[in-house]
């Protein structure tokens, strides 16, 4: 099957098997920032932005991304030019093992795109779908709060 969509700002044509998920597709394209934590939609390690909203890419069938705008953390910033949220996560010590970090940054970015001044409750709510076992969420919440 074939689909056309925008991936990290580039128009992309993808060929895929019918059962393929966006998560698998992204990793097959060497976009490794999306991670496997459960493949059941419970952990958020595979978070991607779909038309500016954070979603779990392991639950997104490839054929449904037709015409959509898909973003991963690679679209926010690069090693040479970090996005301000990436920098904030570093500065606040919000990164420990880093496995859930790209997903958390994307969930935070989705929140900030719809709400420039989120309350702490808004941030907790936006991050709740991104399970983290290292930080207790204290510093990630702080990293987003300072925005």
């Amino acid at each position: 099957m074939k689909v056309t969509f925008t991936l990290n700002g580039k128009e992309t044509k993808a060929e895929f098997a019918p059962g393929e998920t966006l998560f698998h597709y992204l990793r097959s394209q060497e976009i490794y920032s999306v991670k496997n934590g459960c493949e059941l939609g419970e952990c958020g390690a595979c978070t991607a932005l779909v038309d500016n909203k954070a979603q779990n890419s392991c639950l997104i069938m490839m054929h449904t991304v037709e015409g959509k705008k898909i973003e991963t953390v690679e679209n926010l910033g690069s090693k040479n030019n970090l996005h301000h949220l990436q920098q904030k996560f570093l500065d606040e010590g919000a990164v420990q093992c880093g496995y859930c970090t790209p997903g958390m940054i994307l969930a935070s970015e989705a929140l900030l795109r719809e709400n420039k001044q989120p309350s702490t409750e808004d941030i907790r709510d936006a991050l709740a779908g991104n399970l983290c076992r290292c930080t207790g969420y204290v510093k990630p919440i702080k990293a987003v709060s300072h925005e």
Binding site: G44, A54, I60, G129
Partner: peptide, 13 residues
């Protein structure tokens, strides 16, 4: 609706 699922990611889906 909010309390039906803890994850905003999944509430989007």
């Amino acid at each position: 609706a909010h309390q039906s699922c803890y994850s905003k990611n999944i509430r989007n889906q």
